[in-house]
């Protein structure tokens, strides 16, 4: 038996619900939940929903970017960052998931999917430490 990955299920759900509204959507959703329950996949619902979110985001040209900073970033900087990210990934909209982490000391860290740009002071200090303690 071919294995059914979470990704496959999310894709299938996305295909089924595409373009459906109102009563129709309700019916489909009910079927999906029934199916998941029957196949004992409900315990994976969190993963499936995450995947589904990713798929719909891709479809609609949205990127989610995790933004961690030492202090709240001013709106202007965020806008600049958004234009940069839109250009880099060729999407239309950027949704920031902001987090404040004082341990970064200063600067910020952007995460998109599995790519990370870390311009925090903490990272820079870490790198400097690596450089100074390297074996010559």
């Amino acid at each position: 038996m071919a294995t059914r990955t979470v990704n496959d299920i999310a894709k299938a759900i996305h295909e089924m619900t595409k373009g459906k509204v109102g009563v129709e959507l309700d019916a489909v959703s009910k079927n999906v939940v029934n199916f998941l329950a029957r196949k004992r996949l409900l315990r994976k619902q969190k993963d499936i929903l995450l995947r589904l979110e990713k798929i719909t985001n891709e479809e609609e040209g949205i990127i989610e970017a995790g933004l961690t900073s030492a202090s709240l970033l001013p709106e202007k900087e965020k806008k600049e960052l958004a234009t940069f990210l839109k250009k880099r990934y060729g999407r239309e909209k950027v949704i920031f998931k902001e987090k404040i982490d004082e341990r970064l000391i200063g600067g910020f860290k952007v995460e998109v999917n599995d790519e990370v740009v870390d311009v925090s002071i903490k990272n820079k200090i870490g790198k400097l430490q690596e450089y100074l303690t390297r074996a010559v």
């Binding site: 995460e111 999917n113 599995d114 790519e115 990370v116 740009v117 870390d118 311009v119 820079k124 790198k127 400097l128 450089y131 100074l132």
Partner: peptide
Amino acid sequence: EIENYSAALHVEKVGKVMEVFDGIAKVSG
């Protein structure tokens, strides 16, 4: 030494450890 050092900025590919056991790690991303 510090003057010689320049921190180049680049995009890094990262993942997260999902499970670790017996010297093996499953990593997402």
